[in-house]
Simulated assay, not measured.
Amino acid sequence: MDIIDLKILKLLSVDAEMPMKEIGDKCGINSPSAISKRIKKLKEQNVIKSIRAEVDYSKFGLNFLAVTFIKAKYKKNYTDLLSGKLLKISGIITLLEILGEIDFVIITLNKDQEAYKENMRYLMSLDEIDRTDTRVVIENFMLCDFSKIDISEEFNIKISKL
């Protein structure tokens, strides 16, 4: 991976629909096919895992954002077993296993409080869970915006403003 690849990644993280020609112009490469080949290689290397649309889910009535902290009951393979069950929760958008007093954090997006109560009923039915603690989000200022991470710093490379 070189500085051109890093520039391409930075540009795609901000606008995944940017035309190849524009990416090339900003990277100093005149050939859109050369940019396309680099992007294909980054996908093959699993550096680019996917390119997704950012959807405004509130347009579909999904406005109830909740963060739930889960304390699990410890036993053999409990994280694998419980994570598989947690992934079945309606509206789950994030599942994290963390260290400390809490074992898992889930973030869900549902239509309303009643829809979230169904999730809580499911959670309370799971033998692997000791307790839960939920927080309702009243304002979402930023949720998982990885485009703000400057990967060039990891390589001590200064990428000029694109």
Rank of each mutant, 00 (worst) to 15 (best):
M1N: 03
M1C: 01
I4F: 00
L9K: 00
K10M: 04
L11K: 00
L12N: 01
S13R: 03
S13T: 04
D15A: 05
M18G: 02
M20H: 05
E22Q: 05
G24F: 00
D25Y: 11
K26F: 03
G28V: 13
G28Q: 07
I29N: 02
S31Y: 04
S31M: 05
P32A: 03
S33L: 06
S33I: 10
A34D: 04
I35N: 00
S36A: 09
R38G: 00
I39D: 02
K40H: 07
K41Q: 05
K43G: 09
Q45L: 06
N46S: 12
N46V: 08
I48K: 00
I48D: 02
K49N: 07
V55A: 11
D56C: 09
Y57L: 15
Y57Q: 12
Y57E: 10
S58F: 09
S58A: 13
S58K: 14
S58L: 13
K59C: 11
F60D: 06
L65D: 02
A66G: 10
T68D: 08
F69R: 03
F69A: 06
F69Q: 04
I70R: 00
A72M: 12
K73P: 09
Y74C: 05
K75C: 10
K76C: 06
K76M: 08
Y78W: 10
T79I: 07
D80P: 06
D80N: 15
L82N: 08
L82K: 08
S83F: 09
G84I: 08
K85P: 03
L86G: 11
K88Y: 07
K88T: 10
I89S: 12
G91M: 07
G91D: 08
I92N: 02
I92C: 01
I93L: 08
I93S: 03
I93Y: 02
T94H: 09
T94M: 11
T94K: 13
T94D: 14
L95Q: 07
L95R: 05
L95G: 06
I98V: 15
L99M: 14
G100H: 03
G100Y: 04
I102C: 09
I102P: 05
D103Q: 10
V105L: 06
I106W: 02
I107D: 05
T108P: 07
L109I: 08
D112N: 14
D112R: 12
A115R: 11
A115F: 09
E118M: 10
N119A: 15
Y122W: 13
Y122L: 12
D127C: 02
I129E: 04
D130C: 11
R131E: 15
T132G: 11
T132Q: 08
D133Y: 15
T134I: 12
R135M: 15
R135G: 11
V136M: 13
V136Y: 07
E139N: 11
N140C: 14
N140G: 11
N140R: 13
L143W: 12
C144H: 13
I149M: 13
D150K: 14
D150N: 15
E154I: 15
F155Q: 14
N156V: 14
N156E: 15
I157Q: 00
I157A: 05
K158G: 10
K158T: 14
S160C: 10
K161N: 09
L162Y: 04
